Amino acid sequence: MLIAEDEPLARMAAVQALSAAGLDVVQACDATEALAILAEHSGVHVLVTDIVMPSGTVNGYQLTAMIAARWPQIRVLIVSGTDRPQPSELPLGVGFLAKPWTGPDLIAAVRALAAQQGNDV
């Protein structure tokens, strides 16, 4: 599983919650780093990404589109404290979780996405 989040505290909280649930987590500070990690690690089944990542050149929506084109088997969970996309606005295999989320909410959302694909993360 990969976390792409530019806010260090949010990234650490996500990594801590998912790691405590027994999940293997790799982290990226922006979309560019996330894409580089995905190019080198074939075992990623779920990506959690923020929508707004001002430190990079690509936002979470653009990253999701790139993932769908290159790695359609990867499920994506978009998190945001500002945008609130409707389920009908999200592509197949993409979920949404509003910030602020709780650890159990994040874990449940990640596991639900992985289960869609038949993976147990």
Rank of each mutant, 00 (worst) to 15 (best):
M53W: 05
S42Q: 03
V44H: 07
W71I: 14
R84C: 04
L63C: 02
V52F: 03
Q73F: 11
G43T: 12
A39M: 04
P72I: 00
E33H: 10
R70V: 11
V48A: 11
D30I: 08
G56Y: 13
T64E: 04
T32V: 13
I78K: 13
L63D: 01
N59W: 02
S80R: 01
T82N: 01
I51R: 01
T82G: 00
R75P: 08
N59P: 00
V58P: 10
L38Y: 04
S55E: 03
A34R: 03
S55N: 10
T32H: 08
G81Q: 01
G43M: 07
H41G: 10
G22R: 06
L38A: 01
V26C: 00
E40L: 06
N59F: 02
T32R: 06
M53K: 05
D30R: 09
A36V: 13
H41S: 13
V48N: 08
S80E: 04
L63N: 00
H41Q: 15
M53S: 07
V52T: 05
A31M: 07
L63F: 00
Q27K: 05
A36F: 10
G43A: 09
A36G: 11
Q73V: 11
V46N: 02
R70Q: 05
A68N: 13
L77S: 10
P85I: 06
E40S: 06
L47H: 10
P54Q: 15
V44R: 03
C29G: 12
L63Q: 00
A21F: 15
P54M: 14
R70S: 05
L77W: 15
D50Y: 03
C29D: 09
A39L: 09
P72Q: 02
V52C: 04
L38C: 04
A68S: 15
G22C: 08
R75Y: 07
V46Q: 03
A39H: 08
L23M: 12
A36L: 09
D24Q: 12
T64H: 03
N59G: 02
V46T: 08
V26W: 01
G81A: 07
L35C: 14
A34P: 04
A69K: 15
V79Q: 07
E33G: 08
C29R: 09
L47I: 15
L23C: 08
Q62L: 03
R84G: 00
V48C: 13
A34W: 03
A68D: 14
I51D: 02
V79Y: 05
T57F: 09
L23T: 08
L38D: 01
S42T: 06
T32N: 10
E33I: 12
A65H: 11
V79E: 04
A31F: 05
T64F: 05
